[in-house]
Amino acid sequence: MSILLKDVHRAFGQNHVLRGLDLEVLDGETLSIIGFSGAGKSVILKHMVGLLRPDSGDVIVDGRNVSELDVGELNELRRDIGYVFQFAALFDSMNIAENVAMGLRRMPDMYDDEIMARVSECLALVDLEGTEDRYPSELSGGMVKRAGLARAIATKPKYLLYDEPTTGLDPVTVTVIDRLIVRMKEELGVTGVVITHDIASAYRISDRIVMLHEGRIRTSGTVDVIKESRDPLLRSFLEGRPELAERAS
């Protein structure tokens, strides 16, 4: 099953962010969404997990239309989706083990010892063994992001949504996170959607890249296709040259 967005419109007051967006994420692939700041990339992710509902159009995840689900059905779907927030959104009143365990505590038939075993497993997967008793404020930026990833994968989701997972990190930590994202796909077989401004990172982790502009997909293709594209707006973004964007508009 894949993720499908059909003719999605979403406005915030006068700001019409998504304007008939069509997007398909294929099963098992990692898709990166790039685009200028404020283009609505995070809004797309929030629609996929039901944090936002479209004004019109359909958001279909795992064969289920997200806007038509009641709270119980939506929670059921959310157990199959892991969401890695831009700033991790860890619960600052809880230690790392409690944070990672949060999703597991909503799983039926999971007992404390199983939960703690899974927590240790997830923390090991993101190289954070031994941080169970530490609080988010005691970790570095990279560790916080990895803890957020551990929390997102704890329930063994089919889909992982990453909102700018490498923003604000040093180059080495960026590579560590990139490798983790690739590992999630290869070892756990998850379908990934990544919002990123980091082009080098997008090239490393993506099967496909799409560019969002003015509420719709402007360009879409494999990493090679994107690299070869002559679209001036895309080139402007990839090369960081605003004059190309001005020419395109």
């Binding site: 039901g50 944090l51 929670n75 059921e76 959310r78 157990r79 969401y83 860890l90 619960f91």
Partner: peptide, 9 residues
């Protein structure tokens, strides 16, 4: 963190 709560069901 409230959004995170929702995504964790």
């Amino acid at each position: 963190q409230i959004d995170a709560l929702e995504t964790l069901a």
